[in-house]
Amino acid sequence: MSQWAHDTFGQRAPAIRQAVAEALSVALENARDAQRMAQTDHLHPFGFTLMSRKFEALAEAFEDMGDVRIVKPAGSQHELVVLDGRLLFPFRYAKDRSLSVMSARIGDGRPSALVQALFNRFGPEPRMRQLALQGIAPQAVPIAEALGDLPEGTSLVLIAYACNAHAGLLDAWWGEAELLDRTGSLRWHHCEEIPLAQDTPAAYSSTLSLTFDTGDMPTPSLNARTGAERLAPPVSEAAPARSEAAAGE
């Protein structure tokens, strides 16, 4: 367990990390079941089910844990988990293993007003103020007001995962990042892999974490490597891949 996880969640960090992995697995299996039942080649059943179940499964996983609040911002269809002052926000960053999480974008295209508000209010202090939320902050004001009942010290913890209807959950990461621009680009301040429920014990001990305290973030190349191995220094800049979330997430 990393120092960041311990500082963020305390002694409950291992249990919380495992619950996050299990909740994502449940949401993915529910979405794959919906796709199979629909008996269609179109991926709308998978996408729409995943869009809702990723939030619901997290809420179900933590609803009985102490210091938990389940909030539903005005204008949002989904409930968000606030665990001991940490707001958990899951999003799909890729549909396969070709895109590094370091090149992840949040949302498919322009970030929603809710996403903007969450970063504005609860995200980490931007490393480069002139780039942070460039040109999009004013649109976040109405929903930011709806989040006003949450404590000022609440912080945003991102849960990024890759998946598809055929293979299910491929990998998952959590950490803190700032939203850079209207395309959903992120600058990770900290990012580490979440061992998945089906991983072997050896995978837990080999999990790597990265904390970027100084300098520019690396931009990895497209590759077929998996897990924390894909956080190695890049060879060339990667073009962002379009997420399968357009099918309904």
Rank of each mutant, 00 (worst) to 15 (best):
S2C: 06
Q3N: 08
A5K: 13
H6P: 00
T8Y: 09
F9T: 06
G10H: 00
Q11C: 03
P14W: 10
A15N: 13
A19M: 07
E22M: 09
V26D: 15
A34I: 01
Q35A: 15
Q39C: 01
Q39A: 00
T40R: 03
G47V: 09
T49K: 10
L50G: 01
M51Y: 14
M51G: 06
K54H: 12
E56C: 07
A57L: 03
A57F: 01
F62N: 11
F62L: 05
D64I: 10
D64S: 12
M65Y: 14
I70G: 02
I70F: 01
V71A: 12
P73A: 02
A74N: 01
S76P: 06
L80W: 11
L80R: 02
V81S: 00
G85I: 06
G85V: 05
R86N: 12
R86D: 04
L88A: 04
R92M: 12
R92A: 09
Y93R: 13
Y93V: 05
K95N: 06
D96C: 09
R97E: 12
V101G: 06
S103C: 11
G107W: 04
R110T: 10
S112F: 09
Q116A: 08
A117T: 07
L118C: 09
L118Q: 13
F119G: 10
P126G: 13
R127W: 11
Q130P: 02
A132C: 09
L133R: 15
I136Q: 12
A137P: 02
P138I: 07
P142F: 11
P142G: 05
I143D: 03
A146S: 14
G148F: 08
G153N: 12
G153P: 04
T154F: 02
S155G: 11
L156W: 01
C163R: 05
H166C: 05
A167M: 07
A167F: 03
A172T: 03
E176R: 07
A177E: 07
E178I: 10
R182A: 13
G184A: 15
L186W: 12
R187N: 13
R187H: 14
W188D: 12
E192N: 04
E193R: 14
E193Y: 03
L196P: 06
A197G: 02
T200F: 00
S205K: 04
S206A: 00
L208H: 05
L210E: 03
L210W: 12
G215I: 03
D216Q: 10
D216R: 05
P218K: 04
P218G: 09
S221G: 00
G227N: 13
A228R: 08
P233W: 00
P234A: 02
P234I: 01
S236L: 00
P240K: 03
A245D: 15
A246Y: 15
A247T: 05
A247L: 06
G248C: 07
